[in-house]
Design a protein around this nucleic acid. Structure first.
Lengths: 138, 138
DNA sequence: GTAATCTTTAGAGTCAACTCTAAGTCAAGT
DNA sequence: ACTTGACTTAGAGTTGACTCTAAAGATTAC
């Protein structure tokens, strides 16, 4: 079975080897095996697991919570419910992030328009009488 | 013209007064006026500007870059092009974030399904023969 | 007018997530 | 055998963004 060194994996996942060692130190990689001399040997399945870790991280989940998930994985079928619940919660977190990102996008696009027209006019003054936007909650 | 105290603004924007003072210290709020005794007086337009700051922050822009933008605003029409370019770049950053968030969502949803079926079976073993997913670039 | 509750500042402390250093070990090429 | 470069560890250092403290001054409520 093909294995990979830490720097190969780092390159593949676009992180540094330092970061991977840090994750290991924090308990996110209890599954990675070692050679007799102590060097890490990453399997394909380890890289897949790291992809899940990256995915959780990208939802804003802190390392410590990801560790809890890894611990659940190690514990086996007894923690299936916790893991299911966790991913369902992540799903709603990501849904919220998507909505927020859309609001952000609206404002950014409005500003693009604002500056495009200001540039055409040569001055921002053309927007002097724009009404101040009060965020609408409903 | 109605004005607001730092704690009123903090409440409104869902941040702490500490945070607002920190932003001020970092140069994000040169426009906020003061009473004779030195207390900050926030106008509606200041709150609008803080909303833009929050918007930029939510795209992952660091405080120092936001300060650059605020400095451009202070400099006037001469920096219209820079500000337009900045928002156009933010737009493409947010587009990228949206795409990434969709990829994240796909993986999360897949995991929800994975654990839902595992729960129904009472064991994760039913997925033993799932092929390892190799991220597809195209 | 005085107590309670703001506000101000400079500067220190915290926290997460890296990021690096030092000193040593291991592996691959010539 | 020896050099070069990758790997190991513990632990220190960095960064960004707050978060708080202390001591002082200002404002509000009665």
């Amino acid at each position: 079975m093909k294995t990979y060194s830490i720097s190969e994996v780092a390159k593949e996942l676009n992180v540094t080897a330092y970061t991977l060692r840090y994750y290991d130190k924090e308990g996110l990689m209890p599954f990675v095996e070692r050679t007799a001399s102590g060097q890490r040997l990453f399997k394909e399945s380890d890289i897949a697991a790291l992809n899940i870790i990256e995915c959780l991280k990208s939802t804003g989940m802190p390392i410590k919570e990801i560790k809890t998930f890894i611990d659940w994985c190690t514990a086996g079928d007894i923690t299936l419910q916790q893991r299911f619940d966790m991913f369902m919660e992540r799903k709603s977190v990501v849904e919220k992030q998507m909505k927020e990102l859309e609001e952000t996008m609206k404002l950014i696009e409005h500003k693009c328009y604002y500056y495009k027209t200001a540039l055409e006019a040569g001055t921002e003054d053309i927007h002097k009488n724009d009404k101040i936007e009060i965020p609408v909650t409903t």
